[in-house]
Computed example of a mutant assay.
Amino acid sequence: MSSQAQLLMLDRDAVAAVMTTDMIDRAVRDAFALHSARQGRVFPVVREALSTGGIFGIKSGDVAARALLGFKAAGFWPRNRELGGEPHQATIMLFDPATGRPRCIMDGNAITTARTAAAGELGLRILARADSTSVCVFGTGVQARAQLSAALRAFPSLRTVRYVSQDGRPKPDFEACFDGTCRPVLALDVDAAVAASDVVITATPGAGPLFSAAAVRPGTHLNCVGADTRGKRELPGSLLERCRLVVDDSEQARSLGETQWAPSVPHAELGDLLTGKCAFDRQADDVTVFDMTGLALQDLVVGEYLYDAANAARVGCLISWPW
C-alpha cells in the first residue's frame, strides 16, 4: 500500500557489512556486459564546478528489463582534507521506475572506490601484457591505493612497484598499505619510472600531463583514472595518437576523459571486448590505454546487488516513506 511504503537507508557501515570484492567484480562485469548489449542506458553526465571550490556531478541511467533506475550524486571537494575528511563524496539513490518512488539511499564513497578499482582490474586483465612484472602508480590517495591493489590481484607477477607522490616526498602511510604484498618505492624521476614500467596507473586529480610521451615505451599499458571532467588530463599530448585506445563509454570519454584531447582517435569500448562483440588481439609492442570515466551503470548495478543483499541480511534502516 502507498501509505505503507518504506525507504531503505544504507550508511557507510551498512554498505561495508554486505559488500564483498567478489560482489563488486561480478556487478562491474555485469554492468559492462549490459552496456555492450545496449540493455542499459547511460544518461548525459552533469559535472560542474562550484563556487565553494568543489566539483559536483550526477551520473544516472536505467536498465528497463531489470526495473533498475537511479543516479549517483558525487564530486570532489579538496578542502575536505583540512577537515580531516575524504575529498571524494558520493551518494547513490535507486528508484522504482514504475512509480518514481525512491527505494534506497546508500553511501557511495566505498562503492565508487571499489567499482572503479574493479573496472581497472578488468581493464588490466584484458589489455595489459600477460608477462607484466613492473608497475608505476601516480597518486597516493584512496583511488591510487585501490587501483594498485587491483593491479596486484590481476598480476601477482608484479614484482617492481614504483609510485609518484604529488609533492615528491615519501608517503609512509601509502607504503604501509602494502606491507606483506609488495614494497612500493618512491620514484623521483617520473619519466625514468614510466620507461621502466610495464603498467602505468594514473590516479590523480588530473591537473595536467604527468610525464612525457617519449617515456612510454612499446608494450606499456596505461590505466587512466583522473580525467573525469572537462579540462582534466593526466596523459601528455600525442600519446593517444600512437596507442590502442579503449574506453568505458565513447561519448563520455570524448567529453570528460583523456579522449577529449584526441576525440578522433579510433577506440573500442571495454564492454565490447569483454563480450566478444569487438575482437582485440594485443601485440607485444602495442601501447594500450584504458580511459576510465566511470559508468553510471556500474554504480546502479552495484547498488542493485547491495540493495538485494541488504534486504536479505536485514541490514540498514527502513523508514516510512508514504505517498
Rank of each mutant, 00 (worst) to 15 (best):
D198T: 01
D198P: 10
V199H: 01
V200C: 01
V200T: 04
T202N: 07
A207G: 02
F211C: 07
F211Q: 04
S212A: 14
A213D: 10
A214M: 06
V216Y: 02
R217F: 03
P218E: 09
P218H: 06
P218K: 14
P218C: 12
G219L: 08
G219W: 04
T220E: 04
H221C: 09
L222S: 04
C224E: 01
C224A: 15
G226S: 01
D228G: 05
D228K: 06
K232T: 01
K232C: 02
L235T: 03
L235V: 04
P236R: 03
G237N: 08
S238P: 01
S238N: 12
S238W: 06
E241F: 10
R242H: 14
L245K: 09
L245P: 00
V246T: 11
V247Q: 00
D249P: 00
S250C: 13
Q252R: 12
S255Q: 15
G257F: 02
E258I: 04
Q260K: 04
A262C: 08
A262F: 09
P263A: 13
V265Y: 05
P266I: 13
P266F: 14
P266H: 05
H267V: 11
H267Y: 06
A268W: 11
A268T: 12
E269F: 04
E269C: 15
G271D: 03
D272N: 11
L274T: 12
T275F: 02
K277C: 13
C278T: 15
C278F: 09
D285P: 10
D286N: 14
V289L: 14
V289F: 04
T293Y: 06
L295P: 01
